[in-house]
């Protein structure tokens, strides 16, 4: 990793963090409504995995997808406008926080049915195989999804058909408010990949370098073999499940323990230690992010509402 690459990765993680903090602020001001699921604490996963992908690779994600969209390069202005419900948003304002789409970036949502996008991801990878395309499909989901039947159907189909699919399980330890040990009979989720004969690796999702190494290997393997790969990233969400969550199900002490492993702090230390950055350069990045986030808010504020006459537009193709 050179300094430029290091700065870009740090910039992406910090942009996600700051964007999420600003989103929470805008939520409390009632600018953003509905559900808002923050990615804070998990930034190394989205950034580490997505840096391994090429532009033509396709990404599907969950309702906690802000981090993935930002790491993919979906315009933060359009993302904020989407959360405001404005028609300048990346989904015309119709999806909100849980449903970002940007097909120009090969970003296919934003799916809020837990595990609902996994079969689709298999199908998209199958299409690539049938069309002899070199691109892969990357599907993010949480450990909650790994309890759904669709996860098991998707894993079996992906292995059976040998399609180029990267399945990324973001194990943030809680399916909403229910801990892993209350939802899974086996806590080492990577064993579920082995059961289907899929190459599987579990990695510390709080460590960007570890995620990068694992993701690069996974993507190289998929591109070489055309076969699926299961990557489990063990991570933690620092904030509540959504803005309605009083966090009755976990100790503050546990959260504080995990915060000691904050992926951004860890990566900054790494860059400084390796002399890939300086305090001054770090400060420049922060300033740049601050203005970018503010621009996103400004853009959303002046955005416009889709006319009610358009309500039924796109129920069917025009």
């Amino acid at each position: 990793m050179n300094a430029e690459e290091g700065h870009h990765l740090l910039y992406q993680m910090q942009l996600i963090r700051r964007f999420e903090e600003k989103s929470a602020e805008q939520y409390t001001k009632a600018k953003i409504r509905g559900f808002l699921h923050l990615y804070i604490g998990e930034e190394a996963v989205a950034v580490g995995v997505i840096q391994s992908l090429a532009d033509e690779d396709k990404i599907l994600s969950t309702y906690r997808e802000h981090g993935h969209a930002i790491a993919r390069g979906v315009d933060t202005k359009k993302i904020m406008a989407e959360m405001y419900g404005k028609q300048e948003g990346c989904s015309l304002g119709r999806g909100g926080s849980m449903h970002f789409f940007d097909t120009k970036k090969n970003f296919y949502g934003g799916n809020a049915i837990v595990s609902g996008h996994l079969p689709m991801a298999v199908g998209m990878a199958l299409a690539s195989k049938k069309q002899n395309k070199k691109n892969i499909t990357c599907c993010f989901f949480g450990e909650g999804a790994a309890a759904e039947g669709e996860f098991h159907e998707a894993m079996n189909l992906a292995a059976l058909w040998q399609v180029p699919l990267l399945m990324v399980c973001e194990n943030n330890q809680y399916a909403m408010g229910t801990a892993l040990k209350y939802t899974h009979s086996i806590l080492e989720l990577e064993k579920k990949g082995m059961a289907y004969g899929i190459d599987t690796v579990a990695v510390d999702g709080m460590d960007l370098n570890a995620v990068i190494n694992a993701a690069n290997k996974a993507v190289a393997k998929i591109k070489e073999t055309g076969k699926p790969y299961f990557l489990v990233c063990n991570t933690y969400r620092f904030r509540a499940h959504s803005m309605f969550d009083a966090e009755l199900y976990r100790d503050k002490g546990e959260v504080e323990e995990w915060k000691k492993r904050d992926p951004i702090t860890t990566f900054k230390k790494y860059l400084l230690l390796e002399k890939l950055t300086t305090e001054q350069e770090l400060s420049i990045i922060e300033t740049r992010i601050e203005s970018e986030v503010q621009e996103a808010v400004d853009f959303a504020e002046v955005g416009t509402w889709e006319p009610i006459e358009n309500l039924t537009k796109f129920v069917y193709s025009q």
Binding site: M120, G123, A125, A127, Q131, E153, N156
Partner: peptide
Amino acid sequence: DRIMDVPLSESGFVGAGIGAAIAGMKP
């Protein structure tokens, strides 16, 4: 490749059909 038997996974293979359709096939 054109006539695909599938396991008994209705959600899985219908979803895969949807995904393939999104990605340019005609399932």
